[in-house]
């Protein structure tokens, strides 16, 4: 199964928008997640939880620590999907 990187970014953007209560068109892949109004550690963890549910993967704390943008998060997801596919 090939991994659709654009699709992952689009889905993560939607998750971030829904969890943080902002419009999707205010977000670009490089948006600093921690700079979004209302983005506290609890909400960001819920973003991670939703991402895990969506792709049925489990992300280690080590992997999400240091993640600052949608693009970063999509890389982590892609890597996890590759591990699973292998």
């Amino acid at each position: 199964m090939s991994i659709d990187a654009d699709g992952i970014i689009r889905s993560i953007t939607e998750i971030v928008a829904a969890e943080l209560g902002v419009a999707t068109d205010t977000l670009v892949p490089d948006t600093d997640l921690r700079g979004i109004e209302g983005a506290d550690s609890v909400r960001l963890l819920r973003v991670v939880a939703k991402v895990e549910q969506t792709w049925d993967i489990e992300l280690e704390d080590d992997e999400v620590f240091g993640v600052s943008s949608i693009a970063d998060l999509s890389k982590v997801v892609t890597a996890a999907l590759q591990v699973r596919a292998a």
Partner: peptide, 9 residues
């Protein structure tokens, strides 16, 4: 303290 998700390193 441990880092939280998306913490700034």
């Amino acid at each position: 303290p441990l880092p939280t998700s998306a913490a700034d390193l």
